[in-house]
């Protein structure tokens, strides 16, 4: 009888210690997860602001200015554009007269 009790006591102790360990482990992992999640948010934010930055660098205003100043380009007009009709619609609409 006593032996069974001692055995059970040991089992309870072991289980309790294991529980403590598991609890500790779960909190540790949870902290890791939190860290990763906040990293994700930060990266998402960063990507969003890079997108905004990319867009800010490519506004029509800036592109127009650079194309004119640096590349000496000018706006296209129909006079310097060759229009080709799309194959399916070619039959329906006559191609642009040259």
């Amino acid at each position: 009888m006593t032996r069974v009790n001692v055995l059970l006591l040991l089992a309870v102790l072991a289980s309790a210690l294991y529980l403590v360990h598991i609890q500790y482990e779960s909190r540790r992992l949870f902290v890791e997860l939190e860290k990763a999640a906040s990293q994700m948010r930060k990266l998402e934010m960063e990507s969003e602001s890079f997108l905004a930055e990319k867009r800010a660098q490519a506004t029509p205003l800036r592109v127009d200015k650079l194309a004119k100043d640096k590349l000496q380009m000018r706006p296209a007009t129909p006079a310097i554009t060759q229009y080709v009709a799309h194959r399916e619609t070619a039959a329906a609409t006559p191609p642009a007269k040259p």
Partner: peptide, 11 residues
């Protein structure tokens, strides 16, 4: 939009 007026091409 495709031009609808004949343009003297400068190409």
């Amino acid at each position: 939009v495709q031009p609808d007026v004949t343009v003297k091409p400068q190409i």
